[in-house]
């Protein structure tokens, strides 16, 4: 049974999208994953399909899929850029996305092509407001 909104972990140091991805600046790069709300809605995550390193993706492009036992969800780029790393550990340990969505469960790291796209994302409060409206 899904968590109440008050039970969700929402980090301050990341920005969010309407599709429930998050993005965090780490030096010049940006790491991307899915929010606690998203992992909770999906349930037990059993497989994460990620793009090849060096792929160039634009904001809104599909960069992979995340699978629970009974559903597949597409992942969309919160901002455009070139993929510099993917979280290889998820291949053997997809449950990291459930256990630790903002840290161990990160998915891709990119070099952003337009930093303004990051700034346009929702902060925690805006995201929380959006969740309350769902």
């Amino acid at each position: 049974m899904a968590k109440e909104i008050s039970e969700l972990t929402l980090q301050d140091d990341v920005r969010y999208t309407e599709d429930h991805e998050w993005a965090r600046k780490e030096g010049g790069a940006v790491k991307i994953g899915i929010s606690d709300y998203a992992q909770d809605q999906l349930g037990d995550i059993v497989f994460v399909e990620l793009p090849e390193v060096d792929s160039e993706l634009e904001k809104g492009d599909e960069f992979g899929t995340v699978e629970s036992t009974k559903a597949v969800s597409e992942l969309y780029m919160p901002l455009g850029g070139k993929v510099v790393a993917v979280n290889e550990a998820l291949a053997d340990d997809p449950e990291q996305v459930n256990k630790d969505p903002y840290s161990g469960g990160w998915m891709v790291e990119i070099e952003p092509s337009d930093p303004a796209e990051f700034d346009a994302m929702m902060d925690k409060d805006a995201y929380l407001e959006m969740l309350k409206g769902l």
Partner: peptide, 11 residues
């Protein structure tokens, strides 16, 4: 039944 996400009723 497993790896059902490959199948028609889900994907």
């Amino acid at each position: 039944l497993t790896l059902a996400t490959r199948e028609q009723h889900i994907r």
